[in-house]
């Protein structure tokens, strides 16, 4: 994953959005698919790699496990929230530019 230019991958964006609430891995997959009306299907291997990278970055954190559950739950951190806000501003710019220029063209 390349964060250097500030643009998040679609997978990372949806993982961070999903983790505004505590969720385990499979919950993230389901939520991303639901939010995107079935378009975004995060594959398990890709998701696992992304979760580990985000943990390293400190954008998400693992919750202390419930006693009778092996499933690990994750939640977004403040740093992750900041990242999401920056990404949202970037996406707005993309959308606004696209809308403005395409409208001009169709006039």
């Amino acid at each position: 994953m390349n964060f250097a230019n500030g643009a998040l991958t679609e997978a990372v964006y949806y993982i961070l959005l999903s983790l505004l609430e505590a969720r385990h891995g499979y919950g993230i997959m389901q939520n991303a698919e639901e939010l995107s009306h079935g378009r975004v299907k995060l594959a398990a291997g890709t998701l696992y790699g992304a979760i580990n990278t985000l943990l390293e970055k400190g954008w998400i954190t693992a919750l202390p496990g419930a006693k009778n559950s092996r499933k690990k739950e994750y939640i977004i951190t403040d740093a992750g929230r900041q990242t999401l806000l920056r990404e949202l501003a970037r996406l707005e710019e993309l959308v606004n530019n696209g809308k403005a220029l395409l409208k001009e063209e169709s006039l």
Partner: peptide, 15 residues
């Protein structure tokens, strides 16, 4: 549903 382990080029390349 369909079964894929990787859903982006980056992770396919890593594999």
């Amino acid at each position: 549903g369909p079964f894929d382990l990787f859903s982006d080029y980056e992770s396919r390349i890593q594999h």
